[in-house]
Amino acid sequence: MEKNDHDDKQGNGYSRRGFMQFIGVGAGVVGASLLSPPLRRPLKAEDVGTIFPASEMVKVRLAVNGTVHAVLVEPRWSLLYVLREIIGMTGTKIGCDRGECGACTVLIDDVPRYSCMTLAVEAENRTITTVEGLMKGEELGPVQTAFVETDAFQCGYCTSGQIMAVEGLLRKVESPSPEEIRLGCSGNLCRCGAYPNIFAAAGKAAQLKSK
């Protein structure tokens, strides 16, 4: 898990790319915190637990796709925001930002969740999987392959969320029934109405996975 720890490798808590994006996004806030004393770890007080003050950015370690990223976050930042804007992984999409579309679906400890409705600080010490994490090296993973082969998208905007919902379903149920597939995908809207092919892709993915 820690073998690619950006923190250890680069010593400053950022991948270069993440850092540049960070500057790009919230320059005002970042400027201030770079001038102030060294990055703070969350305080661990015996009598209180973990504390993140409102006005400060705190370093959290997020395990995303097998790599631990040490990132500076504000407590109010969603996991979606941190994945895209701080870590620089833009495979996870932002749709409604209010729990009503599923575009931002990721797996947390193998379970599909909306990253827009999850605070990044809540994802500390958990295992996060995004669509980028389903790649097998340079090759597509089985669920991704199934989506391509069954033409399970039109505009593609909902696709990474759909793929993560199906991945989560298949991690729980090896060969889901059509009803289980429908339910498993019911938290993901597709404005293009590609549902029949998405359901077909889920069935195909189950076959590919079991090979």
Partner: peptide, 16 residues
Amino acid sequence: MLPKFSYIRPDKLDQA
């Protein structure tokens, strides 16, 4: 973006 808040995650019920 949400308004600013501090965040505390207690380990024990009485702390909470």
